[in-house]
Design a protein around this nucleic acid. Sequence first.
DNA 1: TGTAACATGTAACGAGTTACATGATTGA
DNA 2: TCAATCATGTAACTCGTTACATGTTACA
Lengths: 180, 180
Amino acid sequence: MSSTKFVLLSLLAREPLSGYDMKQQMKSRVDFFYKINNNQLYPTLSKLEEDGLVELQAYERESYRPARKVYKITDAGIECLKDWVKEPGSWEEFLLKQYSSWLVEPEILISILEEKKLEQEQLLAEFKGKTASFREQNERLTSDHPLFSSAAVLEMGYRFGRCRIEWCDTMISWLKKGEI
Amino acid sequence: MSSTKFVLLSLLAREPLSGYDMKQQMKSRVDFFYKINNNQLYPTLSKLEEDGLVELQAYERESYRPARKVYKITDAGIECLKDWVKEPGSWEEFLLKQYSSWLVEPEILISILEEKKLEQEQLLAEFKGKTASFREQNERLTSDHPLFSSAAVLEMGYRFGRCRIEWCDTMISWLKKGEI
DNA sequence: TGTAACATGTAACGAGTTACATGATTGA
DNA sequence: TCAATCATGTAACTCGTTACATGTTACA
């Protein structure tokens, strides 16, 4: 149920890698936001291999250090990853899935994005209502008033929502063009 | 170390509540983003009471249902919460802290916000560099190319960063005015 | 001489999730 | 009659974090 195994599949879908490589990528890559630790990494990799979603491509051993095990994603792995990308989920998970969106047909992606957009628009409407009721009930909120902080957090929620909607629009336009 | 206890203190800083009340608020409030389950709620409340950060204000018992325990934050609790709000942390934690920003002196808040803003600006510069190097290396990215997805995720990171910076600016202007 | 990089892995712990248990009352 | 609401709490489990263990080579 956790995203960890899909994160590993997401990386392996692009190129064969060892566990160590994956950790390095997660450290350095600015375009991929995820942190993993050894305790999750290696057992999860073993489980993926058991399930036939990845396979050992190379086993580079040098005498003085542990063998470097390079894994490769299988066809079943690609299918599994594709299915996951199409599944609904929270915004955070959705963003993670976008990293593997290149595997999915553009038409399907567009419909997913349009649904996400709708979801955010509904949330935005709720925020708007809340903010309005704040302003009505309290004409002036000084910075030591609890509702000042509530308004601040609400403002952030509102801005984030708008930001997400705009991003969805940009993505849809990119996909309709077919390239960037 | 976890935020859970501070979340409970954040709610109690505004008004005395029972554990059940807190859960209800987290469900319904649009201005507060946090989910808690009974297994964390009740033991954490007990621990807060042990530590003298909250105290029992009322113990409303009706024969046919469990006693309703209404808690009240103590002076020590307020101090503890205030200290937490001033501490540095991740953006997510920072947002949580903003819900109790009304407890903190505006000058201190402004300096915290300015630091957060700087942090985001540095991140944004990194994103900008990455995006530029993408564009240079690949003139055209079709939607089935892995780097198309990388660019999509990067674009989101960039937009979020800008959104955060703009929000910081808005907050600073609110605080300098002293009210909204 | 010490520490960072390489490369795998385990152990112990803390945090979080789902599900369950109680039990009268209110409303569909 | 069935489910939901009120209100507390426990049990079992998964997930994630920090720290440790191995052992050579390269570099400051």
